[in-house]
């Protein structure tokens, strides 16, 4: 049974219709499609599959946390389910966006907004924010805890 109903799927299709650049979702699960795939991993993978299916600009690559451990390490993925969002190209550009756990409820909208921004949207940040970011000298790691409401 699909995770997104037809109405939501249509909204997603509309939201992603004007992407001007390709976006790649690298999804890490374990034991894809098997009995041992964790419930959230399966749901997150299916959600990503359905979202990718709504737009020719969005590509999904499903990886195995164990079998592709080297790649997970490259992306700094240390837990699953994980979604790594990349601006696609040759090579794809990793801007540092990760989603751990299923982006449901309010976070689903945020996930779609992420794809829109990566696919050519304008982040629309304040001028002083952009200036401050330009002056950063050391890494900043943000972990935003959310719940699926």
């Amino acid at each position: 049974m699909p995770i997104l109903d037809e109405k939501v799927r249509e909204q997603v299709r509309k939201a992603l219709a004007d992407l001007t650049r390709p976006v790649r979702i690298v999804m890490f699960t374990q034991g894809e499609g098997g009995a041992l795939e964790c419930d959230y991993c399966q749901q997150t993978r299916e959600l990503a599959e359905e979202v990718a299916g709504t737009s020719p600009q969005v590509t999904l690559e499903v990886r195995d946390f164990e079998a592709d451990a080297e790649l997970a390490k490259t992306y700094g993925v240390d837990k699953i389910p994980a979604l790594v969002l990349l601006a696609d190209g040759t090579p794809p550009r990793d801007v540092g966006i990760r989603l751990y756990g299923i982006p449901a409820g309010y976070e689903f909208s945020a996930f779609i907004e992420d794809l829109r921004l990566l696919g050519g949207g304008e982040p629309g940040l304040r001028e002083d924010t952009v200036r401050a970011l330009g002056q950063l000298k050391s890494p900043v790691h943000l972990q935003v805890f959310v719940t699926p409401t």
């Binding site: 751990y100 756990g101 982006p103 629309g124 940040l125 970011l133 890494p139 972990q143």
Partner: peptide
Amino acid sequence: KLAMASDLVTADMVE
């Protein structure tokens, strides 16, 4: 958005 705007910023959503 901050992650997109700066190479030094990484941002995780954690459920």
